[in-house]
Amino acid sequence: MPRLLAALVILALFAAMPEVASAMGQSSLMTLAARILIYAMAAASLNFILGYGGMISFGHAAFFGIGSYTVGILAHHLASGEPLFGIIPGSGDMAVTLPAALLVSGIAAAIIGALSLRTGGVQFIMITLAFAQMLFFFFVALPTYGGEDGTIISSANSVPGLNMRRKATVYYFILGVATVYFLILWRLVHSSFGEVLKGIRQNERRMTAMGIPVYRYKLFAFILAGMGAGLAGALLANFLRFASPDIMHWTKSGELMIMVILGGVGSFFGPILGAAALLVLEFHLAGWSEHWQLALGAILLLVVLGGRGGINGLLARLAGGRR
């Protein structure tokens, strides 16, 4: 029950944000809130494999970027009128671009996951990083889509009945998608599939002995996580009207991991708290000093060395009234 209440409070806060922002005359607040929602989705997808499944993927930004580029590339071909590979027409319709982003990032995750999951430990961390770097350099080397500079999307994808030229409408659309996304994720985490995944993290050998095809479960979880990040990337492209290789750089993968850790690994609301904490911190510290990364580094170090369970753990301890 308190969790339901927490979820409703978070939802209400985000829903009120555009009004609050315009009342305060600070439109940048709405941008910040939208970025928190999008990054929370991406971080939550990483948390799904990392926190629940114990797979430390250091290349999760790859799928974030693929989703973003799917929207960017479709918009590019819509503008130029030339079909992609001569057969796939461009599109600016949300009903096409979002499923496309899910599909493409899902396929990429299937390929990368199928290969990476054959290793484990340090090698898994490094091979996921390697695949992400390959994709990063691949998009940097594509002059058609702007190379290093990325590709500009002239307008947000259309949704029937909505005026997507209004920033606030795009924001509410993102909020809607994020709500549905987290509802699905909630069901998934608490399904038998989610339980098996947690079991694999705790003891892979035991799950194998119980007759569970561990590899197949992990791969399926990896694909779902890739699709989640792809969806978040597609929304980000729509919101920023821009897709660039920057968002699949390895430091972005690191940032997503920071959000997961900061919020609390393997806790459902952790990624939302973590994304909010990191982005708000960045927003304020960056305004305060250009050397804000110094403070960020120090805070992060303290959280990792001293904290147990991140912000979510802290809240639970406060609510429990004991340390």
């Binding site: 690191g254 991991m257 920071i258 850790i261 960020l296 580094g297 992060l300 170090l301 990792v304």
Partner: peptide, 8 residues
Amino acid sequence: VLATFALI
């Protein structure tokens, strides 16, 4: 990974 990332 995270602690040494913070060090960077």
